[in-house]
């Protein structure tokens, strides 16, 4: 049924989320591409970091039928192991996930051709049209699969869809420039200005990121900066003041805030990870914390607002 033109490349897609309201104007479909050059300690989608397919396991769904064990060609299913999967042997071929009746085993990352992915996102075209919405590419870091991202955005534009991207900014400047003609909106994360801190908490240097941020503003790209508001890690006085200074220097007076949610922590066990994040990441951001960040920005002369809407008084 699928159309596969000869040169139709594929990308590794983590998830496709429809009726997405926080990733740009209107009703949107957000496509999460797998793979990220950063590994932020607070990453709420740890399954998006690795650029390779993985297998997840949700123990609470398992009915113990052992279909996975029979299906696995690598002999990587261990029923006496709480994680169930011997990650050293697993090749992430997906045979276990395909056979698992209760979806306890599931593939993390699925390959899509451009045409197939376009077909998926076009399903909600009627809703985009009515609401001024469209497609948002997110991740992981979508520019990591650059050729796919470029081709997909082109295809979206040819199909008349509004497009947006969510990027952490760690990409070759030339690559970002190549995407610009096909993007209606760029949501650019500014996480930490201090390069040592950035290196420590995200695992990467931030010079390229800041340079790209400046470049996008200079070439008048439709860019909105965003800050993941993570207790103590990004939401501290020094960082916010430095972000404020940076923004003013490039001539921007606004920033969107993405409140931290802690509910990703359970996902670690699905990936067989035993490590547990530091205590400050195990609780949600409170509305007071968010309000104080907004306040700190306003002292810097920056208008900050939550991308999820103001905290509602219920």
């Amino acid at each position: 049924m699928d159309v596969h033109p000869e040169n139709d490349m594929t990308g590794l897609v983590l998830d496709i989320q429809r009726y997405s309201l926080d990733d740009g104007p209107g009703i949107r479909t957000t496509v999460f591409l797998k793979g990220c050059p950063l590994s932020c300690r607070w990453c709420q989608n740890p399954e998006s970091i690795s650029p390779a397919p993985e297998i997840g396991f949700r123990a609470e769904r398992c009915i113990g039928c052992r279909t996975c064990q029979k299906a696995c060609p690598a002999d990587a299913i261990m029923f006496d192991n709480a994680d169930r999967i011997d990650r050293g042997r697993c090749t992430a071929c997906g045979a276990c996930a395909e056979g698992c009746p209760s979806r306890a085993m599931f593939a993390v990352g699925k390959r899509y051709s451009i045409s197939k992915l376009l077909e998926e996102v076009k399903r909600d075209a009627a809703f985009y049209e009515e609401s001024g919405g469209g497609v948002t590419l997110s991740g992981g870091e979508p520019t990591l699969q650059f050729d796919f991202t470029l081709a997909f955005l082109k295809a979206c534009k040819e199909a008349g869809l509004n497009t947006a991207i969510e990027t952490n900014g760690l990409a070759a400047s030339d690559n970002l420039r190549k995407l610009l003609p096909y993007l209606d909106r760029i949501y650019f994360d500014l996480k930490i200005i201090n390069s040592v801190e950035h290196q420590r908490l995200t695992g990467a240097d931030n010079r390229q990121i800041l340079e790209n941020a400046r470049m996008l503003v200079e070439c008048r790209a439709p860019v909105d900066f965003r800050l993941p508001v993570v207790p103590s890690m990004t939401a501290n006085k020094a960082n916010i003041s430095e972000i404020g200074v940076f923004l003013k220097k490039v001539g921007v007076r606004e920033i969107g805030l993405c409140p931290y949610h802690e509910n990703w922590v359970t996902k670690l066990s699905w990936l067989g990870r035993r490590d547990s994040p530091p205590a400050e990441l195990q609780k949600p951001l409170t509305s007071e914390e968010l309000l104080s960040v907004i306040d700190m920005f306003s002292q810097e002369g920056i208008n900050a607002r939550s991308v999820e809407g103001e905290i509602a008084a219920r």
Partner: peptide
């Protein structure tokens, strides 16, 4: 979930959803 409608944006998205559902689909 009531939190979908905490913001004006959420309510407007719903109204668009309804219009598309009725008059486009």
């Amino acid at each position: 979930s009531p939190k979908m409608f905490d913001t004006e944006q959420g309510v407007q998205a719903f109204i668009s959803l309804l219009k598309a559902y009725f008059f486009k689909l």
